[in-house]
Design a protein around this nucleic acid. Structure first.
Length: 103
DNA sequence: AACCTGACTTCGG
DNA sequence: TCCGAAGCCAGGT
């Protein structure tokens, strides 16, 4: 359980799919809380076992700094079947999580 | 209470 | 498509 709606949403992102910061915020009830998701990931990650690597920016790219998580996140996603194209960008039309599309 | 910060997003040029 | 500016939320100082 978690009293945090954002944490709940993050835990629902299925394997092999990704969600954007803004998308997670929206699903949690915050229309403009992208930065709140950032805060949640950096803090709540220590208290919950969150699939933090499934969160990417709206361009389908990784926001972590190279040399400090960037490579790890890319490796985690690649291991789940998420493909990276030119510019290390993910095709969101193919890998973005669509809540309710299937089980 | 004001100000700063962070793995962001949107808009205009 | 890329860049800069403004807007957002909560916690920490």
């Amino acid at each position: 359980m978690s009293s945090n709606p954002i944490v709940e949403v993050i835990l629902r992102i299925p394997r092999g799919k990704v969600a954007t910061y803004g998308q997670v915020a929206r699903l949690a009830g915050y229309a403009n809380g992208a930065r709140l998701v950032v805060w949640t990931l950096s803090t709540q990650r220590k208290r919950h076992d969150l699939p933090w690597y499934r969160i990417v920016n709206v361009r389908g790219g990784i926001s972590l700094p190279r040399g400090d998580g960037y490579e790890l996140q890319k490796a985690m996603l690649t291991a789940e079947g998420v493909a990276f194209g030119a510019g290390d960008r993910i095709d969101l039309s193919r890998f973005q999580w669509q809540p309710g599309e299937e089980a």
